[in-house]
Computed example of a mutant assay.
Amino acid sequence: MRQLPIFVTLLLVASCSQEPERRYTVDELLADEALLSRAISDCRGNPGELRNTVNCQNAEAADGKRRLQNMRKALGG
């Protein structure tokens, strides 16, 4: 019976020690097209929860930067 509180405590500690999500920079997202597409898709698919996260903000910034680069290339610049 004495082991039950110890087990419950260990279970609670294990569930709280979740590894944080990796944060990607704008440059990392620009360098990896698949990662950027996945991040944009995830963020736009769940804007209520993810819109204000660092990864979504960086993904939107990278997407905007990529669009500008593509427009410059299309205009010959």
Rank of each mutant, 00 (worst) to 15 (best):
D42P: 00
P20V: 06
A62N: 06
K73C: 06
D63A: 13
I6E: 12
L11P: 07
D32F: 05
R44D: 15
E21V: 10
P47Y: 01
A31D: 14
F7D: 10
T9A: 15
A59D: 01
F7V: 15
F7C: 13
R67M: 09
N46F: 00
G64A: 09
A39R: 01
N52T: 09
G64F: 06
R44A: 14
I40F: 03
I40P: 00
L68A: 13
N52C: 01
A14Q: 11
V13C: 10
E49N: 08
N58D: 05
Q3Y: 14
E19H: 08
R38W: 08
P5C: 11
Q18K: 13
E33G: 07
E49T: 03
E21M: 09
L29D: 02
R23D: 06
N58F: 02
P5A: 09
A59S: 06
G64C: 03
L36M: 11
S37W: 07
L4C: 08
K73D: 11
N58I: 01
N70M: 12
L30C: 09
E49R: 06
L12V: 14
S37E: 13
S17W: 14
F7H: 09
Y24N: 02
L30T: 05
T25R: 08
M1K: 11
G45Y: 07
Q69G: 05
T53Y: 03
L35W: 05
R22H: 14
A62Y: 01
A39F: 02
L36Y: 03
C16R: 15
D63S: 12
L11Y: 07
C43Y: 01
E19A: 15
S37G: 15
A62D: 03
A61K: 10
L35V: 06
A34F: 12
L35P: 04
